[in-house]
């Protein structure tokens, strides 16, 4: 059961970062991970700082020049329902749609998903391939952390005591095809057995693939750009990237799947992903 804790609802970032200085305090946005952890006794904060009243955290903007900004109070359904985003950067929309249930997505936020720092976080692969930046605020002001440095391990981030994430920035809207794939045990809501996102960027002529649930953090594949630039045969490329993926991942056996199965899915899905993002139409 959820045990006793103190609660404060703040309306400014300053109030929030001040409150977060005390004891074992945690910011509360959607609460769909935090309240479950508290109920299960995994997390027992003594203070919840409700940040939903902070207007500036509702930032949700996008344009071709400045990229995309998604504040800590933006729910997944807000993201999913945004038609412009779906047009500009569907991999974000698709990743968000794969998470949990409609009801939970009315509360859950993109920022919360990455702060929870599950290796299987469904928003993470897309943010990795888009070079997303995580903006954290503390009493000493803001700092910006590349997503790949933000998540440091299972349920671990680089956030320091008293810091909270205020928004995520995607500096540049990708020019090219993206794709998000997620293997789950049933078609209904489930955590990812394996998830991945890919981008074949025509402008920079780069290929990015990030795979989740196969290591302590999401894994961004390296060395794909040269392969992509020298592409002759899409099927060959798919095979080569799949082999690189298998070399990069280090999945474990757990209650959701065996390492062997995860590797099998990594192989099959990487190929599907590459075929999809490199298809001419």
């Amino acid at each position: 059961m959820i045990r006793e804790f103190a609660y404060v609802k703040v309306s400014t970032l300053k109030e929030a970062t001040d409150a977060l200085q005390s004891g074992n305090a945690k910011p509360l946005a959607g609460g769909t991970d935090l309240l479950v952890d508290m109920r299960n006794g995994v997390s027992r904060p003594d203070l919840l700082v409700d940040i939903k009243g902070i207007e500036e955290l509702k930032t949700f903007s996008m344009n071709k020049g400045n990229g995309i900004e998604i504040g800590a109070n933006v729910t997944l359904n807000t993201i999913i329902e945004d038609k412009k985003l779906r047009e500009l950067c569907p991999v974000i929309t698709d990743s968000a749609m794969s998470i949990a249930t409609y009801q939970l997505r009315n509360r859950a936020t993109l920022v919360g998903n990455i702060c929870n720092a599950s290796p299987a976080a469904d928003m993470a692969p897309a943010l990795y391939i888009l070079n997303a930046l995580v903006v954290a605020a503390g009493v000493n002001g803001e700092r910006t952390i590349p997503i790949g440095e933000f998540i440091t391990g299972v349920k671990k981030t680089t956030l320091e005591k008293g810091e909270m994430v205020v928004r995520v920035k995607i500096p540049r809207i990708p020019a090219g095809k993206t794709c998000f794939l997620k293997k789950q045990r049933i078609r209904g809501h489930d955590l990812a057995t394996v998830n991945m996102a890919g981008l074949a960027d025509r402008e920079s002529n780069t290929l990015k693939v990030c795979i989740g649930a196969c290591g302590i953090t999401p894994i961004l594949l390296e060395g794909l750009d040269d392969l992509y630039r020298n592409i002759r045969d899409r099927e060959n490329l798919a095979e080569e990237v799949a082999m690189i993926a298998l070399g990069a991942v280090s999945p474990i056996d757990d209650v959701r799947a065996s390492a062997e199965y995860r590797r099998g899915i990594v192989y099959a899905y990487t190929k599907r992903l590459i075929r999809e993002i490199t298809s001419p139409n």
């Binding site: 609660y7 609460g31 769909t32 309240l35 919840l48 249930t101 009801q103 939970l104 009315n106 509360r107």
Partner: peptide
């Protein structure tokens, strides 16, 4: 908005 009331304080 539809929400699961078990996860709202």
């Amino acid at each position: 908005k539809a929400v699961t009331s078990c996860l709202v304080l």
